[in-house]
C-alpha cells in the first residue's frame, strides 16, 4: 500500500475506496471509483489508476483494462470547453455530420483532439436521449438543441464568454 505521504489520489476518492472495501464485492466498485476520479480530475492518469489498483487490491492490469474498454473514460486531458457532438441516429438523420464538419473547420481539429491553446476539445457521444430536439451538442454540461452549422461560431463565442 502506498503510504499516505506519497499519495496522489484525492482524499475523497481514498475515502470512497475505503468505504467500498467494507462492502460486499469491493472490486465491483471499480467503475464507480473511476467515474468519481474522472469527475474530479477530468481524466484518468496512470499514477492515479495505479494507486486505485493498489488500494482496491486488484491487479493494475484490471484497472487499465477497464479504463480502456469503456469509451466514457478519458486517458488524456480534454479542453477547457469540451464540445461533444451527438452522433446518435436521430442526430445523424438531422444532419449531425454537418455540425461536426463546421466545428472541425472552425477549430482546425479532428474528433478526439484538443486545440493547441487547450481551450476546446471535440468529442462525440451516442445519444443523450433528447433525440426529439436533434441535432444536439453539449459544451461542458450545457445541452444545445436543434443546432445548425451557422450557429457554430456563435456557440463557441458564447462558451468563451461564460
Amino acid at each position: 500500500m502506498t503510504n499516505s505521504t506519497q499519495t496522489k489520489l484525492y482524499p475523497e476518492i481514498i475515502e470512497f475506496i475505503e468505504e467500498c472495501l467494507t462492502r460486499e464485492h469491493p472490486e465491483s466498485y471499480l467503475i464507480s471509483i473511476l467515474h468519481k476520479l474522472q469527475e474530479r480530475h477530468g481524466y484518468l492518469t496512470r499514477e492515479h489508476m495505479y494507486e486505485v489498483a493498489q488500494r482496491l487490491q486488484v491487479p493494475a492490469s484490471v484497472v487499465s483494462g477497464v479504463s480502456t474498454f469503456y469509451h466514457f473514460f478519458r486517458l488524456k486531458p480534454r479542453g477547457r470547453y469540451a464540445i461533444s457532438i451527438c452522433l446518435g441516429t436521430a442526430c445523424f438523420v438531422k444532419g449531425a455530420d454537418k455540425i461536426l464538419e463546421a466545428f472541425r473547420k472552425k477549430l482546425g481539429i479532428n474528433m478526439g483532439e484538443t486545440t493547441k491553446d487547450g481551450l476546446f476539445s471535440l468529442e462525440n457521444t451516442r445519444c443523450l436521449g433528447v433525440c426529439g430536439l436533434a441535432p444536439v451538442v453539449t459544451i461542458n454540461d450545457k445541452i444545445y438543441s436543434r443546432v445548425t452549422p451557422q450557429q457554430v461560431p456563435d456557440l463557441l463565442s458564447r462558451a468563451l464568454a461564460d
Binding site: H25, E27, S28, Y29, I31, L34, H35, Y70, F73, R126
Partner: peptide
C-alpha cells in the same frame, strides 16, 4: 445503482452483469 461507462455492448445481459462486477463488459 451502478453506472455504465459508454459501452453499448454492456446493454447485453451477460456483459452488463460483468460490468456490475466491475469488469470489462464482454
Amino acid at each position: 445503482v451502478r453506472l455504465g461507462a459508454g459501452a453499448f455492448v454492456c446493454g447485453e445481459e451477460t456483459a452488463l452483469m460483468l460490468s456490475i462486477e466491475g469488469k470489462r463488459g464482454q
